[in-house]
Amino acid sequence: MMRLLAMIGAATLGGLATVGRMALFTASTFRHLVTQPFYGREFGQALFQIGFLSLPVVGLTALFTGGALALQIYSGGARFSAEAVVPQIVAIGMVRELGPVLVGLMIAARVTSSIAAEIATMKVTEQIDALVTLSTHPMKYLTVPRVLAATLVMPALVGVGDIIGILGGYIVGTERLGFNAASYLQNTVDFLEQRDIVSSLVKGAVFGFIAALMGCYYGMKAGRGASGVGAATKGAVVAAAVLILVANLILTEAFFSI
C-alpha cells in the first residue's frame, strides 16, 4: 500500500515538475520574443516550412473529412427527416470544430515532430552549445522564430482547411447527394456567423503556438543519443496533441458557452 502511494506521489511530483518546466519555458519564450535581436531569416524559413509546406496535408485532410462529414450528416439526418441540413452542419462542423482541430493535429504530427527531432539532434550533437559559444541565444535563434511563425501562419492554414473542408462537403453534396449547387453555397454562407470564423482562427493561432512550443521544449530537453531524439519527438507530439485537445475544449467553452 505504501509502495503504491509512493508511486502515485512520485508520478504527481514528476507531472507537476514538467508543468512547471513548461511554464518557465513558455515565459522564457515570451521574454525573448520581445527583446532583440530578432532572427528574421530564421522566421521567414519557419513561415515557409510550417505554413506553405503544410498546405498539401492540410488540404487533403480537410477535403476528405468535409466529404465524409456530408455523407454522415445526410445518412444520420435521414433518421429524422433532416437531410436538408447537410450544408449548414458541414459548415458549422468544419469551421467551429473539425477544421481547427484536424489542422492542429496534422500540424502536431508534421511540424511538432520535425521541430523536436531537429532541435534534439542539434542538442545531442552539441550544436546548441556551439550557438551559445557563438554569442547566439538558442531560445532567440531556434524557439522564437518557430513559435511566432506557427502562431501567425496557423490561422491561415485553418482558414484554408475550413474552406477546403466545406468544398469537400459541397462536392459530395452536389455530386453524390443531389443538392443544388447554388442553394448549397447560399445555405453555407447564410448560416455561418462571424463568431464561428473568429473562433476558428483564434483556435488556429493557439494550436499553432502549442504545436511549435512543444516541439521546441522537448527538443531542448532531449536526452543523449538517438534514443533521446526519439523520446523527445514522441513526447512532443503526444504533449502537443493532448494540449491542443484540452485548449480546444477551453476555447469552445469560452466562445460558445450557453
Partner: peptide, 19 residues
C-alpha cells in the same frame, strides 16, 4: 560570460557544425 563570448572560439569534439 555574455560580455566575454566574443573573445572565445571553440572547436567541438564532433565539430558541431550547423547542418
Amino acid at each position: 560570460h555574455d560580455n566575454l563570448l566574443h573573445r572565445f572560439g571553440m572547436l567541438f569534439q564532433a565539430s558541431a557544425l550547423f547542418d
